[in-house]
Design a protein around this nucleic acid. Structure first.
Lengths: 246, 246
DNA sequence: CAGTGGTCTAGACCACCTC
DNA sequence: AGGTGGTCTAGACCACTGA
């Protein structure tokens, strides 16, 4: 009867999950930012008044979800998209033959608009709110690979322009982090096959109507808050989308 | 200098990984089969002469990879595809709107052939070795969703026929397990967009040449041994392939 | 060398399941 | 009541990093 409660159960969580929630809150609040080191397990343990093993288990879970990265001998670091090693953490592009040539990003267009019903719902903003639309091309060794159409909430990216995109790095998300303090944490993708329309056919240099792999991505930050909606058209003559199932 | 060795390093692994390897070997050898319970952590600890915590960590890893499933109060069980809860562990099919109707499998054809170069390489068998080719349709609420063309090494599935497939369950993998002792553990998928050929267009009831999502899957059992090669054509008018990125 | 995460142990208690 | 996995602790030692 120890856990008995009137009405709905509050679903007690173990200590290490509460610790995890506390650490996550510090991430959200920006106490430790992506790329930075977080306090040692021993220090967190004494701060929260629990054993090191409990902190360890909390961090283990967060490391499993790529929220943080452990480095033996150095410490534990907040995950970032600016680290070259995890530049393209969310990119599942691979070459049909051989290894994928390092992809390069070519920003094409960037303009402002008002959110339609679909975009507003997906980004959890008001219909009619300001949004930014970006189009860009991803090339791999001079071969067009992916054509992206990206929808961003204007509020989070106040001054974004094509020039800024052009001067930025290949990883859009490293720009999100460094310039706007927006930290992509995870993403959800829906894959379909579609016929190339005129625009994507021209950009990807394929025949209009030829089959393209459409990848719709909703990118989320801490607290599952959406920060990006993206439609990516993959040219799959020379490339494919790689997925591992366990 | 403790770990110094002449020539290439043997890459010492921690105790819990060695324990994990021992447990995995017992799975491979069939000492405990899918669906069955494995010995308790305490018993494994005493059997291997290590602490329960070490066994726990080994099993933790295996549970994270879906090799085993923990059930509090009951025990730890070898993962199976026969459990209704994990019928479609490898299926990423989802409905564009609403929830996916429970899919049903319709076996269409089943014949024997000799492995060509491609199939032989993928299945790691000799070119010219006996293979079995299966075609089937997956429907969701009477709507055609996925057309599968499946290549199997003949050696592993000696007596497979269309009749057996027809009398089997929705999950092909539950048949693999129950009738042939073949246990799919993980899979690797390559996704592309292609134009529907005559056969798949007819089966999926779409126009010839319309875009389809092609999912090529290599299915592996213990020790990363390939046991199946599959080409799946997804009709993505009403459905999509769902992928989560962390 | 000191500091970090990584491993391993032993023991206590809790939550859940079955008999 | 007895068995299982789940949590939590405390302490020891190892492996890696950088000053």
């Amino acid at each position: 009867m120890k856990n008995a409660v009137p009405f709905a159960a509050p679903t007690f969580s173990p200590l290490y999950r509460q610790i995890r929630a506390l650490i996550t809150r510090s991430l959200e609040s920006g106490e430790w930012r992506p790329g930075e080191i977080i306090p040692s397990e021993a220090e967190l343990a004494s701060r929260f008044g629990v054993s090191q093993g409990t902190v360890r288990k909390a961090i283990d879970e967060m490391a499993a979800e790529n929220l943080v990265v452990r480095r033996q001998g150095k410490g534990t670091f907040v995950s970032t998209h600016m680290d070259p090693d995890s530049y393209s953490r969310f990119l599942r592009l691979a070459a049909n033959e051989g290894k994928l040539q390092a992809p390069t990003s070519v920003p094409l267009e960037c303009w402002r608009a008002k959110a339609g019903a679909d975009v507003a719902r997906t980004l959890a903003i008001e219909a009619g709110a300001a949004i930014i639309i970006v189009r860009r091309l991803l090339r791999s060794g001079n071969v067009p690979a992916v054509f992206d159409e990206i929808y961003l909430p204007g509020e989070l990216f106040p001054d974004l322009t094509l020039d800024i995109l052009k001067s930025a790095d290949i990883s859009l998300y490293s720009l999100f982090e460094s310039r706007y303090g927006v930290y992509p944490v995870r993403a959800d993708e829906r894959l379909r096959a579609v016929a190339a329309d005129r625009v994507s056919a021209r950009v990807l240099q394929v025949a209009e109507g030829s089959p393209l792999l459409l990848v719709e991505r909703v990118t989320l930050t801490y607290g599952d808050k959406p920060v990006e909606w993206r439609r990516a058209y993959y040219s799959t003559q020379d490339f494919h989308y790689h997925s591992e199932l366990g």
